[in-house]
């Protein structure tokens, strides 16, 4: 028996080298992913919902559950309204540790485009830094995204975060 942890499925085929995608679109997608990370790292939570369509779905899944085919999500916000509700809760209701966050996004990979929906995967590493300046690696994993162009702007139709760090460091108040 191969005893190594089963790798999460990596989609085959890439448009990265396909001239049909166009260098401009590749650049735009990368820029969009970086803008998302900057928005969270600069604590502009109120702008976070703007990255999503009205009927978008933002999910965080545990890699352990994904590999075992179990559906329970860690976060399951299936509308932009729910994404906005998380922002309000984070600002006004929830008690959680104040930290600085730092998102590193890499290995951006455009898997394909169909009917105007770009399938994109990327890796992330998110660090948390306490109010006393101590930094820990909070979570690593992967984004699986469906991105569309709406009124000249890129938006997430779905953003699924699959956390390799499925033993969540304390809790997950802030989005990844």
């Amino acid at each position: 028996m191969n005893d190594r942890a089963k790798a999460a499925p990596t989609p085959a085929g890439s448009l990265n080298s396909d001239p049909a995608l166009g260098a401009d679109m590749r650049t735009a997608i990368e820029r969009f992913l970086i803008e998302y990370a900057r928005c969270l790292d600069e604590d502009r939570l109120e702008a976070w919902p703007d990255f999503f369509l009205a009927d978008a779905c933002y999910q965080v899944l545990s890699r352990e559950n994904v590999e075992h085919g179990l559906p329970a999500p860690i976060i399951y916000h299936y509308s932009r309204g729910m994404i906005e509700d998380r922002v309000t809760s984070l600002r006004d209701a929830l008690t959680y540790e104040p930290v600085y966050t730092r998102h590193m996004v890499s290995n951006v990979y455009v898997v394909g485009v169909e009917a105007g929906v770009y399938r994109v995967t990327s890796n992330y590493a998110v660090y948390h830094t306490t109010v006393e300046g101590r930094t820990d690696l909070y979570s690593v994993g992967r984004y699986d995204d469906a991105i569309v162009v709406r009124d000249g702007q890129l938006k997430f139709k779905t953003r699924t975060v699959i956390a390799d760090t499925f033993a969540i460091k304390n809790n997950m108040a802030l989005p990844l």
Partner: peptide, 8 residues
């Protein structure tokens, strides 16, 4: 339906 882990 699934498992979750928290390292508290």
């Amino acid at each position: 339906l699934g498992h979750w882990r928290q390292a508290i």
